[in-house]
Design a protein around this nucleic acid. Structure first.
Lengths: 159, 159
DNA sequence: AGTATTGAGGACTCTTTTATCCTAAACTAA
DNA sequence: TTAGTTTAGGATAAAAGAGTCCTCAATACT
């Protein structure tokens, strides 16, 4: 199992790319999808969720697209996760037990509760501006690798 | 998204119950499933994975069932997770980026890498005997709640 | 006004996960 | 040896997640 759903990961990557591209103009979802090597249709669906949650503003027609409703500096990673995957990851019992809590804890409750605080803090601390600048500093790719890219990557790895 | 798949959670619950019940005799999967309020067929499939990984010994026929291949004290939570969900959770990039690593990190890489160490340590530290004794101490339920139980639970909550 | 562009949103398909059911094989006990 | 019990394992079904496609509404530009 991955920590986050694919939709959520795509949403995060798109948001980071948007933060890199600048916050002034509307960016077309099609362009974002192309840069990330994702299906534009699928990404549209995902970003719609962010728009509905009020994280993004959208605009139709030529010169349309999406942009942040607030400065990227103020948008925390957890907001994107909450909008797409929900907060279950940070709030639910690790063993999926209904009603697990301080009063009736599951055998893992205490340790896991401490851990979710850390996890949550991580996601509450990281904002899109910071993540975007990381990408610049490290010269990094957000792009989803195609099968061809993966072959290429593994070839270079061997050398 | 949950941290662990349902199969994995069921496997863990079953293992904890087995540790509570004692390690001497084979326990029938049907009995375990009944106590946990799970489908016996489904649980059988899951425990088969643990058997194939060598964590459990199984025995067919009357007086048959499953039991640990080693003392519960020596079986760590991470072994069950590894057998069912795999180690992706502890090893993969949080943004699902292929090839993310020290050399070419994703914007979250460093923070997330530190975090997975903690997460992994938690799962490597907890063993089934310890978890089982927690259940005894706290008077806890591992049982999956039925819809009826959930109604009951919420009713008591309101009071 | 007309046309091209872009997000919104519904319908649909494919895959994976979750769950059920059936038969076979191994085993116990009478 | 026969009957009953229990895991192994394949076939299948249901549900959720991932992804595609089509139409509509809003918009900009001519």
């Amino acid at each position: 199992m991955a920590l986050l759903s694919k939709s959520c990961v795509y949403g995060i990557r798109a948001a980071i790319l948007m933060a890199i591209k600048g916050e002034r103009d509307y960016l077309s979802i099609k362009d974002i999808a192309e840069e990330l090597n994702l299906s534009a249709h699928f990404l549209t669906k995902i970003l719609q969720q962010l728009t509905q949650e009020g994280l993004l503003l959208s605009h139709r027609g030529p010169k349309g697209g999406v942009k942040f409703s607030r400065p990227a500096r103020e948008i925390k990673l957890i907001e994107i996760v909450a909008a797409i995957d929900g907060l279950e990851l940070f709030e639910a019992c690790a063993l999926g037990l209904h009603g697990c809590g301080t009063a009736t804890p599951c055998p893992l409750h205490e340790k896991w509760a401490k851990h979710t605080v850390l996890l949550r803090t991580l996601f509450e601390t990281e904002d899109l501006e910071k993540l975007a600048s990381n990408v610049g500093d490290a010269g990094l790719r957000l792009r989803t690798l195609s099968q061809l890219d993966i072959l290429e990557f593994n070839k270079n790895k061997k050398k």
